[in-house]
């Protein structure tokens, strides 16, 4: 066990965990931030996507010891009330079915738009194909990303 000071959603949080613990489980088990989801544990479904200094990363494969001074942003840090343009676009297109993967999809979409404010179909498909949705809401996700890009 070791103590880590993490910058999460603008606050400094201290945890005392095994250094190999993935950020996903630090968030969920130790910091009561349940918005970041577990889906596969091997960085292949995107449900656990968070931002590390604005870059989208899979929290299930990111050991707590690898995070130094970088700022972690989770879905809870995007906007508590859902007024971020990407969240708004998700609501406008009523994207979700079961909803489990959507936090990860949104975090990926926000990172995509940060690097490419006006992505085309191919850009969206390439960037988002790491995020699985079993309900098949992909078409609406794509539409929502385009809507958010125009805001």
């Amino acid at each position: 066990m070791a103590k880590f000071n993490l910058k999460i959603n603008g606050k400094t949080r201290q945890v005392d965990v095994d250094p190999s613990t993935p950020i996903l489980w630090v968030l969920r088990d130790h910091l009561d931030l349940q918005g970041t989801k577990y889906g596969c544990g091997i960085a292949l479904c995107g449900a656990c996507t968070v931002h590390l200094d604005g870059m989208a990363v899979r929290a299930c494969q990111l050991p707590v010891s690898a995070v130094k001074k970088q700022e972690i942003t989770t879905i809870e840090g995007l906007s508590e009330t859902g007024d971020h343009p990407v969240q708004q676009a998700w609501l406008e297109h009523d994207v979700a079915q079961c909803g489990y993967c959507q936090a990860g999809q949104i975090m990926s979409a926000v990172a995509l738009l940060k690097n490419n404010p006006n992505p085309g179909d191919a850009d969206i498909e390439a960037y988002m194909s790491g995020n699985i949705c079993r309900c098949g809401t992909y078409a609406r996700i794509k539409a929502a990303i385009k809507t958010a890009a125009n805001k």
């Binding site: 349940q34 906007s79 859902g82 969240q87 998700w90 979700a96 489990y100 936090a103």
Partner: peptide, 22 residues
Amino acid sequence: SQKNVDGVNIVTGKSLFGLDYR
């Protein structure tokens, strides 16, 4: 057409699912 009543809870990552329960 009416929006999902849980829409905001879903896009803000609220604890809605079984795995989220503590």
